[in-house]
Simulated assay, not measured.
Amino acid sequence: MDCNQILLLGLGIEAPWKLVEQRLDMDKQPHELHLEVKAERGAKYPCPVCGQACSAHDFQEKTWRHWNFFQHHCYIHAPVPRVKCQEHGVKRVEVPWARKGSAFTLLFEQAALVREMSVNAAARIIEITDKRLWRIVEHYVGKAVSPFNLSDIEPVGLDEAASKRGRNYATVFIDTEKRQEPVVFATPGKGKQPLKQFSAFLDAHEGDPANIREAVFDMSPAFLSGVAEELPNPQVT
């Protein structure tokens, strides 16, 4: 196995794409490894709508940040084709190493450290801005949350917790009947506003605030008022 094959394996790149050039820029700090990827000449690409193999119509150069190669920042560059599908017209293909619209490879996004530490700390290690990392987190959280079906949720528990130093809070809602993965919703803030957001979240995920039969929380006036306004039928514990 030669070095190109090892790099392709590490990048998650498969045929018809191949590595055609590699360049280490020692003038940058940190140093940058640039990898040029192209498809085989005359290759056909799947239409992103129907999957039909189509010829390239034209190309657009794109760049993605990959996970660091040792201590060097790593970038993939490739001419991404548009195909002309007989049924769906001209469409930009989706490359196998990155999700649509992202400037990062899938392996880079999967390697993010935000499950183990704060976004700011992870961004410092990966050496990108925290805003760019937050966009990655928000995409995958949204993707995970979108299929939630809360039509059968009846008992909820809620409480606030300090999320940072000072007067910064988050309110968390749990399904008190679930023993595993009980968290249903979490939002910045405390008091009445999180109840309004939770009610809207239920509506957006096939739930119904009127189905909540029990609410468990501390007896703060703001929680009592918020539950009375947003959850019409629960027994308060």
Rank of each mutant, 00 (worst) to 15 (best):
G42C: 08
A98Y: 04
D159T: 04
S118M: 02
R92T: 13
L195T: 09
H72E: 10
A222W: 04
E61L: 05
E61H: 05
E154H: 14
L195W: 15
A210C: 03
S55V: 06
I136N: 07
F70G: 02
S151V: 05
H72R: 12
L107P: 00
T105L: 05
V184N: 02
F148Q: 11
W134P: 04
Q86V: 02
A222S: 15
Q5S: 13
H34R: 13
W97D: 05
R99F: 05
A43C: 05
P188W: 06
Q29A: 14
L107A: 12
F59W: 11
Y75L: 04
H73N: 06
P188S: 07
Q52G: 06
Q60L: 05
G226W: 14
F198N: 11
E87C: 01
A122P: 06
E127F: 00
L195A: 06
D58H: 07
F70N: 07
R179A: 12
P147Q: 05
A121G: 03
N211W: 04
Y45M: 04
R132C: 05
E138M: 00
R41E: 13
I153S: 06
R179V: 03
N120V: 06
A53Y: 12
W64E: 01
P79K: 03
E116M: 10
K28W: 12
E109Y: 02
S225L: 11
D58V: 06
G157I: 10
Y45P: 06
V90H: 07
A53I: 01
V95F: 08
R115T: 10
L231D: 04
Y140A: 02
A215D: 14
E181T: 01
D152C: 13
G157P: 14
F201L: 08
D25L: 09
Y45V: 10
S220I: 07
G42Q: 10
V83K: 07
H57L: 06
A162C: 07
S220Y: 13
P46A: 09
M219C: 14
L8P: 13
V145R: 15
I153R: 11
Q29V: 10
T171W: 04
R23N: 13
G189C: 01
E61I: 00
Q71L: 03
P147W: 03
A144L: 05
L7P: 10
W134C: 03
R135M: 06
V227K: 04
Q110N: 08
V137W: 04
A122Y: 00
E138A: 05
T129G: 14
C85H: 12
D175T: 01
